[in-house]
Design a protein around this nucleic acid. Structure first.
Lengths: 126, 126
DNA sequence: CCGTAAGTGCAACTTCTGGTTGCGTATCGG
DNA sequence: CCGATACGCAACCAGAAGTTGCACTTACGG
């Protein structure tokens, strides 16, 4: 299921700042460490480190252009990351559905008793 | 788009270990720090810290049972987390499709020219 | 041609998180 | 009662994220 590469991809896109960076790169098509840092609450150097991480997992690639270094998203790799997101989402979704169905089944089986909804330790959330 | 709560949820499920813990809790229905640590490459204390994080964002809840403390997944909250995953996945997916379509359009337009080096540099869409 | 501004890279330092070890405490079972 | 089991707390270590500071290249206007 979870390979080391998968975990690398995950932890790359798990960081909120890096997700925002990917968003920015996607909407502008490209960007440098300096331009990205202008839209983020962190310094250029921090952005550079994040870009290094993203570059290491292949989510972005760079192309020097004069004195600046332009980064752009690697679409294929991002598509793979999206696939991972969907995979986990669907897995959990399936498990949740299964649990829910099971709960309903139990509920139905309890249908012969006189206590349909006892609340022993269950606190409903907000 | 990204609220602070969302980021908390994300960073909670962004950690590979915590995702595995959720998997374990989902498949067994419940678990303690000790039982979970038996299936993980980390110590019980580390598991406890992760459980504290998951509990703080509401993804799991605990119920003391004698000398042990049983944790279980909060299904509603996990469903919300899954929704977040899907949201980001679909957003990026949409952007990727748009880029791909744009690329094909350019390709088709270039079909008549010979010098595609015209770089407008400015494409601020969101 | 030269000085300056813009952009980058490297290094040291702090802070926070994930992980460990060690120890103290409570609970269960013979 | 006593040992084994499960938990909690605190100190400590390592790595990642972020900062500041400085040196180095590149573009550009005088």
């Amino acid at each position: 299921m979870s390979t080391a590469v998968d975990d690398e991809l995950w932890s790359a896109i798990g960081d909120p700042t890096r997700r925002r960076m990917i968003d920015l790169l996607l909407s502008d098509g490209q960007g440098t460490a300096t331009t990205l840092s202008a839209h983020l609450p962190i310094t250029r150097q921090a952005v550079t480190k994040h870009l290094a991480v993203l570059d290491r997992v292949g989510l972005v690639r760079s192309a020097p252009s004069g004195r600046e270094k332009r980064y752009h998203v690697d679409e294929a790799q991002l598509a793979r990351a999206v696939a991972q997101l969907n995979a986990v989402g669907e897995l959990w979704d399936a498990r949740l559905r299964r649990i829910k169905t099971l709960a309903e089944t139990i509920q139905r089986a309890r249908h012969t008793e006189s206590k349909p909804e006892n609340n022993p330790e269950n606190d409903p959330h907000a």
